[in-house]
Amino acid sequence: MKDLLEIRWHGRGGQGAKTAAQLLAESALDTGKFIQAFPEYGPERAGAPIRAYTRVSDREINIHSPVTNPDIVVVVDPTLLETVDVADGLDESGILIVNTTETVDSVRRKTKYKKGKVATCDATKISLETLGIPMPNTPMLGALLKIKAVVPIEALEKEVQKKFLKKIGEEKTQLNIKAIKRAFKETKTG
């Protein structure tokens, strides 16, 4: 892993992209990394496209500007492929991970991202089947860890446990962890 790992999250307000960015960072913090996670606030409406960022490093992070050349881009909502240039700044060594029912080839066509790695995961389906609500953010964390072991999946589980238990209770917390694990298994690359 290079010194600084930069991840950009694309989602819509209310889908938990900001929470996902934070969860990943906080899991990494627990494994001894330096971290940064921040959302890019616009009008803050449910449904509006939003960006969030995660930085993970072995060294102190001084930079305080948005990520322009991400190592990884995670797209939490498939409809964003039509409206947002999600592959912007992603070079050939990059990774694009999308919540979609479509194939890797189809994603490549839509995003015009040809050279780097592309992975897909039907996180909405996983979320609906596991949690009963469309919250694709946690499964997308599972998808991300499958493609890039930013942290061990156990570290993420621990963090989800810590963060969610008080807020949504034991049962739903466990279902989120289940969704993460299922997404980890079902993520496809090409």
Binding site: Q22, I35, A37
Partner: peptide, 12 residues
């Protein structure tokens, strides 16, 4: 502190 840049960014 810088609004959002610092106030809303999670750091260790």
């Amino acid at each position: 502190q810088d609004g959002f840049i610092t106030s809303h960014a999670v750091e260790g």
